[in-house]
Write a protein that binds this DNA or RNA. Structure first.
Lengths: 107, 107
DNA sequence: GAAATACATCAATATATCTTGATATATATC
DNA sequence: GATATATATCAAGATATATTGATGTATTTC
């Protein structure tokens, strides 16, 4: 029950749905890129990423100073279907600003 | 987005998961039966049933004074998969007390 | 090893959700 | 049509979750 509720409550937030959709669209991104693209203050973003990770939706890979988040693969059937729902939602995604590659990342 | 969040937030409650599982196991039951079996006060149960109904999981059929709730059919893929998850949760269901049939329903 | 950068966590406040008891509505029975 | 029963809704307090700003940690660079 606990794992199910953890999974479901992770989905139960507009911000986290947006993050999932954004990562699903753009592959793996560092916190810095997400923060700039989604225009979120860092602590808020970090909290939501943690919740999504602990609910089994995301994985993190550390490369030097950066933490790259991406959709975990493979996902089980329920999470896959949830992601599929999110993929079909009518959301206007902000443009990707990938500062980590250009060395402009100054937060 | 709103419909998705409504669906997901309906799942995000232990009481409602139990109700779904109970109805999935026992077919359609009136509020009175659910109230007795699950040992819930009436306003609480009624509220959760409404949330599940409005999230597309349940349907209601009125027969005289009684309102019979059951899992809506057909469910879409996401809701079906959610129900499948719930079906596999390790929940100890209380025994069904079907008072409405015996005329003992006095709440 | 000191400074700067990227990220994580904490504490306080704001907001949403759940529970409970009271009240409202609708159907059946006398 | 008055009473009783089944269900729905409302209002207040309790609990959980989100946001923000501040602080902590770890890695890189000099």
């Amino acid at each position: 029950m606990d794992i199910f509720l953890k999974t479901v409550s992770a989905l139960n937030d507009e911000t986290r749905v947006l993050i999932l959709r954004f990562l699903d669209t753009h592959g793996d991104l560092c916190v810095c890129d997400l923060q700039t693209s989604l225009d979120m203050i860092q602590s808020r973003l970090s909290r939501h990423l943690k919740i999504l990770k602990e609910a089994g939706f995301l994985r993190v890979e550390r490369r030097g100073t950066w933490a790259y988040y991406s959709i975990r693969s493979p996902l089980d059937r329920f999470r896959t279907e949830a992601l599929e729902e999110i993929r079909h939602l009518d959301i206007t995604l902000p443009p990707l600003k990938k500062l980590s590659q250009t060395g402009e990342c100054t937060l």
